[in-house]
Design a protein around this nucleic acid. Structure first.
Lengths: 74, 74
DNA sequence: ACATCGTGTCAAGTATCTTAGACATCTCGG
DNA sequence: CCGAGATGTCTAAGATACTTGACACGATGT
């Protein structure tokens, strides 16, 4: 339900890069539920900016390294 | 009301830097209402990541130049 | 076979973001 | 003075994000 978002992310790759971090562990470190991580990771919706910042902080990278937004061709 | 967010922004400064751009014009260019711009500019809540990206695009700057998130000291 | 872990799904509810419209205030130009 | 533009407030409703809890499935290990 809810339309999928245009925002892309590298969460899965970053989790593995960060020593096989599990979705549950990431959820815990970010302060979200596991379900929310799954939904974001799958691009089912775009998180709030605050959550996006918290995720980037956990991985220790800038926000734009985790999330992307496509150019628009009009 | 809802709690104010920890996310900071430079929208007002960027509007003026971009040739006295008005809130209504920004709202229009981003595809939001004027009210939403006001609320975000005042830090009454943090926008969705998608909206944050669109705002940054309008100003032609990276997202992290528009929005900031404080360090956390637990 | 059985238990555990990681991932994923579904459904129903709460919280937060976003919209729409009406209205108040200030400033500026005519 | 009067009108128009820019900012802001309030209320109410609609749309998304996020939570909680339960369950399914494949892989791994004992």
């Amino acid at each position: 339900m809810g339309k999928p978002t245009r925002v892309t992310n590298e969460i899965r790759a970053l989790r593995f890069a960060a020593g096989e971090m599990t979705q549950a562990e990431l959820a815990d470190r970010v302060g979200l539920t596991r379900q929310t991580i799954i939904a974001i990771e799958q691009g089912r919706y775009s998180p709030s900016l605050e959550v996006a910042f918290r995720i980037a902080r956990v991985f220790g990278v800038p926000l734009e390294r985790v999330f992307g937004y496509p150019e628009e061709e009009s």
